[in-house]
Design a protein around this nucleic acid. Structure first.
Lengths: 138, 138
DNA sequence: GCAAGACATAGATGATGATCAATGGATGGA
DNA sequence: TCCATCCATTGATCATCATCTATGTCTTGC
């Protein structure tokens, strides 16, 4: 259970069901860490968490994430997102890729359209890591 | 009250007691915004919040913040922090400056030593903005 | 007052990233 | 089959940043 803040990362490999051992994605690392303020982060933990924050630390990506999250059904197609910005389509595509690669956005293709959806648990875990409060139950 | 998520930023200037009108620091912006997922961020909001996340989005700064926060009395002197990293003293000083400038670390000089302390409300507000949960009461 | 120690600043460099124009790949309709 | 549309990739450019060495600015003790 995440909210107990047992620092699994520091002690052992986390065996993922039918997944690879020892490799923790950024979002997985966040989910299993105690809050920033409760105990010093190890260098490894920091190295895995920083890319997640780096992905968030851009005005365009912040707005993209927020736009997708507040869309009906919690997902949005790229064509809608393009129109919301005064940027080229490849640039938006690039930002969406960054958010997807770190695990903050899910991607699903339906016909000609590609839909992105926010992974809310990932956001909640990250918020808990920073804010020091328990994540909204998963 | 922060937890009500009234989006003051979008509607009016916030008058700070004896402060400048219209200029919101990153931390102030965070404190008065509703969560990322509840409503699309404006471009202005995103522009003010991104620097805060950018400051956090570095492994060294994450560890610094975490180290300071989990120190006794919630503050740490630079000399202690230097020893925890395999980096030059100016580099650590640079990272501390970045965290201080965005309002995540307070700075106080006592004698020859400089102590940094984490601004926990700022962290809590940022966590709430990302995670979508109410900030720990300020 | 002077030397020593604790931090900060300045300037330089190599790496990373945000952006665009051009192009490629896939899907669905005519 | 061919074209139009949606989205991703490529390659290039300019800006930002992490880091270092060298130097400056305090503060304290002698």
């Amino acid at each position: 259970m995440v909210a107990m803040y047992i620092d699994i990362c520091q002690y052992s490999r986390v065996s993922k069901s039918a997944g690879s051992l020892l490799t923790l994605t950024p979002v997985e690392t966040v989910a299993c860490c105690s809050p920033l303020t409760s105990r010093p982060l190890t260098a490894d933990q920091a190295d895995r968490i920083a890319p997640l924050l780096k992905a968030l630390a851009d005005p365009v990506r912040l707005r993209l994430l927020s736009l997708v999250a507040s869309h009906a059904d919690g997902e949005a197609c790229v064509c809608d997102l393009n129109d919301a910005f005064d940027l080229s389509q490849p640039t938006i595509s690039h930002h969406l890729k960054v958010l997807h690669e770190v695990g903050l956005l899910d991607r699903s293709k339906r016909g000609v359209w590609v839909y992105y959806a926010v992974r809310r648990e990932a956001l909640a875990d990250l918020g808990a890591l920073i804010g020091g409060v328990a994540a909204t139950a998963g």
